[in-house]
């Protein structure tokens, strides 16, 4: 693959990547786009490390997921607090209110879940990734992914029934 082919490949993947990050960031499309740009630049610089064992999109999502978690750790560090599990449930204060309002139902449905569960739910239901792909992206074992999916499903079922 050369540079122009790489750019064409990421042009095809950027939409789903930005969408995934946007929901993880609680609707903040500006932060999501910054993260997506950071992830894609990292992918460009480290393309030599892509061994082709997973799909290109899986590899990109992995880098993006790691960028998101690094950002969360930086924010927690800036707040001079150690990153705790309940940090994962705090609302993103920089979320773009207009975007969040437009797709509020989805954010309302998943916002109380820890980020790890949100990521698994979004990758499975929104991005149609397989459990194996999610394993590669998040680095979690398949058992953990399945239990996150199970808890996430129960949560979403309650939410949807509450809406009826």
């Amino acid at each position: 693959m050369d540079k122009s082919q790489f750019i064409n490949a990421i042009a095809q993947e950027q939409e789903s990547l930005r969408r995934f990050l946007c929901v993880l960031c609680g609707g903040d499309s500006f932060t999501a786009d910054d993260l997506a740009q950071e992830a894609l630049l990292k992918a460009y610089l480290s393309f030599g490390k892509f061994e082709g064992r997973s799909r290109f999109s899986t590899w990109l999502f992995r880098i993006a997921y790691n960028c998101f978690y690094d950002r969360q750790a930086r924010l927690a560090g800036d707040a001079a607090e150690p990153l705790r599990p309940d940090h994962e449930k705090e609302a993103d204060e920089s979320a773009d209110a207009s975007s969040a309002f437009a797709y509020q139902d989805l954010y309302m449905a998943i916002r109380s879940l820890p980020y790890a569960e949100q990521a698994v739910i979004l990758l499975f239901y929104m991005e149609d990734k397989s459990v194996k792909d999610i394993e590669s992206i998040t680095g979690m074992p398949s058992g953990t992914i399945r239990s996150h999916l199970s808890r996430g499903r129960q949560h979403l079922r309650k939410f949807l029934e509450g809406q009826r």
């Binding site: 750019i7 990421i10 042009a11 950027q14 939409e15 930005r18 969408r19 946007c22 929901v23 609707g27 499309s29 786009d33 997506a36 740009q37 894609l40 630049l41 975007s99 437009a102 797709y103 139902d105 989805l106 449905a109 739910i121 979004l122 239901y125 929104m126 499903r153 979403l156 079922r157 949807l160």
Partner: peptide, 23 residues
Amino acid sequence: EIRQFVKANMPKVKDSDRFMAEL
């Protein structure tokens, strides 16, 4: 139904051309 709900409510990504040009 869960999948339909998520797909129906996922955000629409805009300005792909601008994003790619910047990138």
